[in-house]
Amino acid sequence: MSVKLDLIYILDIFFIISVFVIETEGLVKFFGHIKALDDLSIHVPEGISGLIGPNGAGKTTTINILAGLVKPTSGKARVLGLDVWSESLGIRRKTRFMLEGQALPKSVRVFTFLNHVAKLCGSDREEVLKVLGIVGLKDFVDRRIESLSAGMMQRLRLAQALLGSPELIILDEPTANLDPIGRVEILELIAKMNKEYGINFLVSTHILPELEEIAGWVSIIDKGKAVIEGKPGEIIPRGLYNEYRIISSNNKRLMMLLRERGFEVEDKGGYLLVKSDIHWRLYRVLGELEEYRIYVYKIEAVGTSLEEVFRKVIVGE
C-alpha cells in the first residue's frame, strides 16, 4: 500500500515538474496596505503561453516574483521546478527575463552591454553577434544605448533575453513601443525560437489578439487573481475581435489602399473601422504600406479590453 502511494507521489511530482514550467499556488503579495496579488494560482505548461490581464491586474508583480526580485507575502511559486525565492539563482541560470520598460545602461554601447550579459550567462561573443542579427540590431553594435530609438531599445531588451541558451524566457509586454510590423516580427520570432530551439515562453500582455496566433496556453488574471486558464481556442472563440479602429496621417488614402487589399473599411470620421479576422494579417499589410508614407498613429482592436473579454467569454454575453 505504502509502495503504491509512494509511486503515485513520485509520478505526481514527475507530472508536475515535466508538465508545468511555471506554477503558482495561493500567491499573495502586499505592498504596504495594497494587495497586488490575491491568492493567485496559475499553471503554465511547456510551449508558448500568455499571461493576460488589464493594467494593474498583477502581471508585472507576478513576473517580478518569478524573477526573484520581489518576495511573495505568502503562497508558493515554482519555475522549472525551483522555488522562486530560495532557489532563485538556479532559476536565473535557466531562465531569461525581459521586464516591462527594463532599464538599460544608457552610456554603454550595444555590443559591450550584450557581451557583458553573454559572459554572465555563460555565453560568448559569437552568440552575441548571432542574436544581434536575429533581432535586427547588427548595424547598431557601436551605438551607445542612449542613442537608440524606443523600438530599437525594445529589440535590445529582447536580445539580452535570448542570450545563454535559456530553457524559458519570460517577456513582460514585449511588443510595447513597437510599430505594427515590429510587433509581428517580435511575435514571429518568439514562435520561431520555440519551434527551432524548443525554448518555452511566457508572454505577458494586455493585448489579447496578439497571442491568438502563437500561444498554446493562456492564463487570464485580474485584480491579482486568476480568472481563467486554458488553450486560447477553447476559452476564446477565434475571430472574436475582428474589428479595429485605426487613426492615421491620411485616413482617406489608407482606406483606399486597405480596400484594394480586400479589407472591409468604414470611415467613421476621425478614425477608420477595419474588419480583419486575423490580427497579424492587418499588421502585416499596414507594415507594407510604409512606402506610401502613411503613419499609423493608433490601432486598437474593438472589444479587446479585458472587461469586454470577461463579459463575452466568461459571463457569456
Binding site: N64, A67, G68, L69, L89, R92, R93, R96, F97, L99, G101, Q102, A103, L104, P105, V117, L120, C121, G122
Partner: peptide, 17 residues
C-alpha cells in the same frame, strides 16, 4: 541610482546573487 532607475533589476535577472 541603479535601484531607483531599475538597472539593478536588469542585472539581477542574470545568474548573479
Amino acid at each position: 541610482s541603479q535601484i531607483s532607475n531599475g538597472l539593478i533589476k536588469t542585472i539581477l535577472c542574470y545568474p548573479i546573487s
